[in-house]
Amino acid sequence: MNTPNYYHYDHVSGEYVGSSPADPDPMNDGGYLNPPRFATFVAPPDAEPGKARCWMDSSWVQVLDIRGTLAWRRADGQPVVFDALGELPEVLTPLEPTDLDMTWDGQRWAVDAAKRLARQTTDAMAMRTQLLSEASETTAGMSDAYLAGLLTAEEEAKYRAFAAYKLALVKLPQQSGWPAAPAWPAKPE
């Protein structure tokens, strides 16, 4: 008589994890002990492509196995690697957003105009602040010298050029292309 096997499965997912020979029953010659927890005497079926064999409700079933698949959270478009058995949950989609400013509309990704405007405004304001800071560093200490008439002609020209540049930067939000396509002023030499 062949020794039967225990067929072990994961205690959470029920996924088949392997087999081992059944333990002989010392009280019953020729008999075997009942399977340990999370095991059965019932052999799993042959694996189907793209499926995992799982013990559910006292029988083996083939469950979709797309673990390792890249999916995107519908709430924020962030990518995640799906790591469970079965279908993707409703909070995930296999569709990748193609733009930073997209939101899930229930069936697909769609550009969110308010989100796009907010991002463009944040990006443009950050660039404007950086350029203003760099210009202020370049002309640091020149304001008092200019007012006191202490600058050389070359220094005064530089100061005036940067003053006009900074003013143009300050006025950028008044442009018709702001914030999507601002016409950045040229930085003086």
Rank of each mutant, 00 (worst) to 15 (best):
Asp65Ser: 15
Pro97Cys: 02
Asn34Arg: 14
Asp83Val: 11
Asp123Thr: 00
Phe38Asp: 15
Glu15Cys: 00
Gln78His: 07
Ala113His: 06
Asp101Cys: 14
Leu85Ile: 10
Met125Pro: 00
Leu132Thr: 02
His11Tyr: 03
Asp101Trp: 07
Val111Thr: 08
Ser133Tyr: 01
Asp25Ser: 07
Ile66Ala: 09
Ser20Val: 04
Thr98His: 03
Pro24Glu: 09
Leu95Arg: 07
Ala71Ile: 12
Ser19His: 00
Lys115Phe: 05
Arg53Asp: 07
Val12Ser: 13
Val80Tyr: 05
Trp109Gly: 06
Trp104Tyr: 05
Val17Gly: 03
Met56Val: 14
Val42Pro: 08
Pro45Asp: 13
Pro26Glu: 02
Gln130Ala: 03
Pro21Cys: 03
Thr98Ala: 06
Pro36Leu: 07
Ala126Tyr: 05
Thr129Asp: 10
Met127Glu: 14
Trp72Gly: 12
Thr121Phe: 07
Val80Ala: 14
Met27Val: 04
Leu95Asn: 06
Glu48Gln: 15
Ala22Pro: 02
Ala43Cys: 08
Arg53Trp: 07
Val61Ile: 14
Trp109Met: 07
Leu117Asn: 07
Ala47Thr: 13
Asp101Ser: 12
Met125Cys: 02
Pro35Val: 10
Asp25Pro: 01
Gly86Trp: 00
Leu100Glu: 04
Asp123Glu: 03
Leu117Lys: 13
Ala110Thr: 12
Thr93Ala: 05
Gly77Ile: 13
Pro79His: 10
Lys115Arg: 14
Gly14Cys: 01
Ala124Pro: 00
Glu15Ser: 00
Gln107Glu: 06
Pro97Tyr: 02
Ala114Glu: 10
Val111Leu: 11
Asp112Trp: 05
Pro79Arg: 11
Ala84Gly: 10
Ala47Leu: 15
Pro24Val: 09
Cys54Val: 15
Met27Pro: 00
Asp76Thr: 14
Ala114Gly: 06
Ala114Asp: 10
Tyr32Phe: 15
Val80Phe: 04
Trp55Val: 12
Ile66Met: 14
Ala39Thr: 09
Thr69Ile: 09
Thr98Met: 09
Asn28Leu: 11
Arg67Cys: 13
Arg67Lys: 14
Phe82Val: 15
Arg74Trp: 07
Leu100Cys: 01
Gln120Asn: 05
Pro49Ser: 15
Glu137His: 04
Gln107Asp: 08
Tyr16Asp: 04
Ala126Ser: 04
Leu132Gly: 01
Arg73Cys: 08
Gln62Pro: 08
Arg53Pro: 01
Trp109Pro: 03
Leu92Ser: 07
Ala43Tyr: 04
Pro97Val: 05
Pro36Tyr: 04
Asp76Glu: 13
Gly106Asp: 08
Thr98Trp: 04
Ile66Arg: 15
Arg119Asp: 06
Pro44His: 13
Gly50Asn: 13
